[in-house]
Every structure is written in structure tokens, then in C-alpha cells.
């Protein structure tokens, strides 16, 4: 029992028990203990005696800790690795009974085949194009709408402002599936079925983005606004010249999150779009159905398509890590 306990302790060393933090801890403790010098000296002796033993323990703790983190990181990374190497294997190599961890021969043609209607059985190229188009247009329009509303809520005064804002926030509690049914009816009634507008319009306004940007706008001091007013600057000019540059980090977060959402959406595009306007995620799923059955399933081609969908997002993430993580930590939504 004790051993288990010890092991656990080592695996989870506390942040403040180590390194710099420990020095900081001692510093903050000592002044307080100044009143009783006896306690202080005994404390210091104890620290010296224990320090050697502690150091060895600490090293073991760190080894355990890094081992744990590394194992978990490998688990997280493995599907990515497997997707990448499988995407460049030949079907024969993929099907080998003893799996190869590195492709013997790089079959780059898998990637070309993703865009060949014959090999993939589905027109994935068009779907990629659709997804990019829908993603870019809906992000730009969404940014415009979000900026205007957030500005009105942050800096303008009008009657019913707080009631309206509160009501908008309240809609965030309702699961999106509840809107889907009526929106599907609305979209079909308006003749937007299988049109780009159906894919773009319903999700143009995100209350969460408005909220996020409004919070950012509120932090910009009002003095700037009043000064601009005295100078006779119009609201729109002030928004464009002062607010937007100052809030650009939040705007970048919103842009990326919105793009990610468009890139990954499945349920709605599947419902309202058909041949010619279908988005990539739906195409991927069709590809899996088409190429998994039968006597010669083609997993390498599937994985190549998956890489093409996944990689752009990973690259964007690595470039804008900070902005994405900051936006996400406040949302709790995926995409």
C-alpha cells in the first residue's frame, strides 16, 4: 500500500515542490517566520538535511512524470502517425500481416487518386472547393456581422441593450439540434436547398463570438472613444481605425475558430446539400463507405483523403496556436 502511495506521489509531483517554485516558496515563508527565530533555524537545518534526499526523489519523480507524459503523448499522436504512413503505402503493403512502421515504397499516387473520380468513386475535388468557398465566405461575413454587433453592445447606448444582450446569451444554452429541424424547413421553403446560401446563412451569427469580441471591446478605454467624438470622428471610422486594430487578437481567434467550424461541419451540410454542393466531411464519409467494403478495400487512398482534410487544420493550428487555444478555452464548443 505504501509503495503504491509513493509511486503515485512520484508520478504526480506537485508543481510548487520543485525547481524555481521551491525557492519562491522558501522566500515567501521565511519573512513570516521571522518572529520565532528558533523555529526558523530548525526549519533551515531540516531543509538542508532533507535537500539531498529530496533531490534524488525529485529526479525519480521527474523520470516518472516525463514517462507518463510521453506515453500519453504517443497515444495522442499515434492516429496521426498511422494516418500519415498508411496514406503513402501500397495496398499490398498496408495489408501485410506484420505491419511496417515506415513505408517501404512511397506510393504518392494515392494522393493523386483522391482527386480522380475513378479511383475515389466520388468527386472529392469539387467538395474540397465547396468547403473552401463556404469557409471563406462565411468567415468574412460572420466577422462583419460580429464586429458590428459587438461594437453596438460594447460602446453604443440604446434602450433595451442589456435585455437584448441577455436574451442573446440565453440562446447559447439551447442545443443546436433544436434549431436544425426548423432551419431545414425554412431553408427548403426559401428554395435554398442545395445552394451555397443554405450552407452559409444559418450559422453566420454566433452569439459566442459577439460575446467574446464585446468583452474585448469593453476593455478598450472609453477616453479614446470620447476623444474621437470630440474630434468629430464617426462611429464607423472609430471602429475601423481604433477598435479593430486593438482587438485583432480576438478577431484572429474568431476567424480561425469559424474556419475550423466550416471545415469540420457534417450534420448540416449533409442535410441541406446534395451533389455538386456537398462539403468535404460528407464526402469523406461516403468515401469510407465506398472503399471499405468488398474484396479490395482501399485504405491507403482513404487515409490520403483524411490527411488532405486534416493537415491544413494542423498547419493553421501550429501557426496560430496561441489564438486558437485562447479562443477555445473560453468556449467549450468544438468548431
Amino acid at each position: 500500500m505504501e509503495e503504491i502511495n509513493k509511486e503515485l506521489n512520484e508520478q504526480i509531483p506537485d508543481p510548487e515542490m520543485s525547481g524555481q517554485a521551491q525557492d519562491a516558496a522558501l522566500e515567501s515563508v521565511q519573512p513570516q517566520e521571522g518572529e520565532t527565530s528558533a523555529a526558523e533555524t530548525s526549519h533551515e537545518i531540516n531543509v538542508e538535511k532533507a535537500s539531498k534526499r529530496q533531490k534524488i526523489g525529485k529526479i525519480f519523480a521527474y523520470i516518472g512524470l516525463y514517462a507518463f507524459l510521453t506515453v500519453m503523448a504517443l497515444v495522442v499522436l499515434f492516429p496521426f502517425y498511422w494516418m500519415l504512413i498508411s496514406s503513402v503505402k501500397t495496398i499490398a503493403e498496408y495489408n501485410l500481416y506484420s505491419p511496417t512502421l515506415w513505408p517501404k515504397k512511397f506510393e504518392w499516387v494515392n494522393y493523386a487518386n483522391v482527386f480522380s473520380k475513378e479511383a475515389a468513386t466520388i468527386d472529392l475535388g469539387t467538395m474540397f472547393g465547396n468547403t473552401v468557398l463556404v469557409g471563406v465566405v462565411s468567415t468574412i461575413l460572420s466577422l462583419i456581422v460580429t464586429v458590428l454587433s459587438a461594437y453596438a453592445f460594447a460602446k453604443m447606448e440604446f434602450r433595451g441593450k442589456n435585455i437584448l444582450f441577455g436574451a442573446m446569451l440565453a440562446t447559447m444554452m439551447i442545443p443546436g439540434e433544436l434549431f436544425t429541424i426548423t432551419n431545414y424547413i425554412t431553408v427548403t421553403d426559401m428554395g435554398m436547398y442545395n445552394k451555397y446560401t443554405a450552407l452559409i446563412l444559418p450559422f453566420l451569427v454566433s452569439v459566442f463570438y459577439i460575446y467574446l469580441l464585446r468583452q474585448n471591446f469593453l476593455q478598450i478605454p472609453n477616453e479614446l472613444y470620447l476623444a474621437a467624438k470630440v474630434d468629430g470622428t464617426s462611429d464607423f471610422k472609430y471602429l475601423w481605425r481604433v477598435m479593430i486594430p486593438l482587438a485583432s487578437p480576438t478577431l484572429i481567434s474568431i476567424t480561425i475558430l469559424k474556419m475550423m467550424g466550416a471545415w469540420n461541419s457534417y450534420l448540416w451540410p449533409r442535410l441541406v446539400a446534395d451533389d455538386g454542393h456537398q462539403l468535404i466531411t460528407v464526402g469523406l464519409r461516403e468515401l469510407a463507405d465506398a472503399l471499405s467494403e468488398g474484396s479490395t478495400p482501399n485504405f491507403p487512398l482513404q487515409m490520403a483523403a483524411v490527411v488532405l482534410v486534416t493537415l491544413p487544420l494542423l498547419v493553421v493550428f501550429l501557426l496560430f496556436r496561441k489564438y486558437i487555444m485562447r479562443g477555445v478555452s473560453r468556449s467549450g464548443i468544438k468548431g
Binding site: M83, S86, W263, N264, L284, Q302, V306, V309, L313
Partner: peptide, 13 residues
């Protein structure tokens, strides 16, 4: 930052 359907296919494979 991944597409759930896409990585689902990796798990499927």
C-alpha cells in the same frame, strides 16, 4: 483541431 469524421476513419482503419 481535427475533423471528427476524418479521424474516426483512422480509428475505423
Amino acid at each position: 483541431v481535427t475533423n471528427t469524421i476524418a479521424i474516426g476513419m483512422v480509428f475505423l482503419a
